[in-house]
């Protein structure tokens, strides 16, 4: 069942097209990773979903309601954490948390205290004294202490230390176990890899990939490290082999997933002593989409989809 569904959302600022027909779907109980470089349109998409920006074209629904017309209703059931949290300098962290919780209409004191404890925040300090990480903790505590059904998190961990990032990941997993949905936009790909069931990649206002990590990996290359008894020949000429490095008997290279079988068969003729394979990391996937777009177009034009 989809909690969030954006269909063909386009957003133009004057002549500039920030979003160009974005399609996005987040299902109930799912953590959806939303990745893309700076300026690709992640935050714009999220702001359209929050009913803060009005889409020029297309339709976006959360809980089956229109994100613009029913924004206030929807917001009672969602929690949002921006990447760049700015707070009122002369209010304390505790006051801001209470304000946000009250504005949403919930009131869960125990959960608030527990989270303050876990994130190690001093709620009695004025917001002007907080570092970036501490301001982010304030937003995270307000979000996770509310009983939302959908969490929209826009690079929520960019200022947190590794320990706090761990706490954040636990909170996301708890939310998921409780059947909540999460839309997580992030630059920290290891985090997305660990937490997300499905991933969407956006580039220049267009969704270029969506799917589970496994599905996405099918579209890419596997890293192989091979040692053989006899020198391997003819590998460089084979279809789907990339970045070949090393000596004759010890080679490392990447193979397009669809050519894997042929390549392994070829290599096995030389007497394999050692074979290490690593699945492509999300980073490989990501880099592949962004590093040199011309390469992408010429090499595998069919791979992109809308």
């Amino acid at each position: 069942m989809s909690v969030l569904k954006a269909t063909n959302v386009t957003k133009r600022f004057g002549k500039f097209t920030a979003l160009d027909g974005v399609n996005l779907e987040v299902n109930k109980g799912e953590v959806f990773g939303f990745i893309g470089p700076n300026g690709a349109g992640k935050s714009t998409t999220i702001r359209v979903l929050l009913g803060i920006l009005k889409a020029t074209e297309g339709e976006a629904k959360i809980f089956g309601k229109d994100v613009w017309d029913d924004a206030v209703d929807i917001h009672e059931r969602i929690a949002y954490v921006p990447g760049d949290v700015n707070l009122w300098p002369n209010l304390t962290g505790g006051e801001v948390i209470d304000l946000f919780v009250k504005l949403r209409g919930g009131n869960n004191k125990n959960r608030r205290e527990e989270l303050i404890e876990r994130f190690k925040l001093d709620p009695t300090k004025k917001c002007r004294t907080y570092s970036k990480g501490n301001r982010q903790k304030v937003a995270l505590i307000s979000a996770f202490s509310s009983d939302a059904d959908l969490y929209i998190l826009d690079e929520p961990t960019s200022g947190l230390d590794p320990l706090m990032e761990q706490v954040f990941q636990e909170c996301v997993m708890e939310a998921k176990e409780a059947g909540k949905s999460v839309l997580l936009s992030s630059h920290i790909l290891s985090e997305v890899e660990k937490l997300c069931d499905r991933v969407g990649i956006i580039r220049e206002g267009k969704m270029i990939e969506t799917g589970s990590l496994n599905e996405l990996r099918h579209l890419t290359r596997t890293n192989l490290l091979v040692e053989t008894k006899e020198p391997i020949s003819g590998l460089a000429e084979m279809k789907g082999v990339h970045d070949l490095e090393g000596e004759n008997q010890s080679l490392s290279f990447q193979v397009d997933t669809e050519e894997l079988e042929t390549v392994i068969r070829h290599v096995s003729q030389f007497g394999v002593v050692k074979l290490e394979s690593a699945p492509p990391t999300l980073e490989d996937l990501f880099m592949r989409h962004y590093e040199g777009q011309d390469q992408l177009v010429s090499e595998s034009g069919g791979e992109t989809n809308g």
Binding site: I78, D84, R104
Partner: peptide, 15 residues
């Protein structure tokens, strides 16, 4: 400008 209205608007608060 400082993004605080964005936080407020993400809550059930009228525009």
């Amino acid at each position: 400008e400082d993004g605080r209205i964005e936080m407020i608007r993400s809550l059930p608060v009228g525009r």
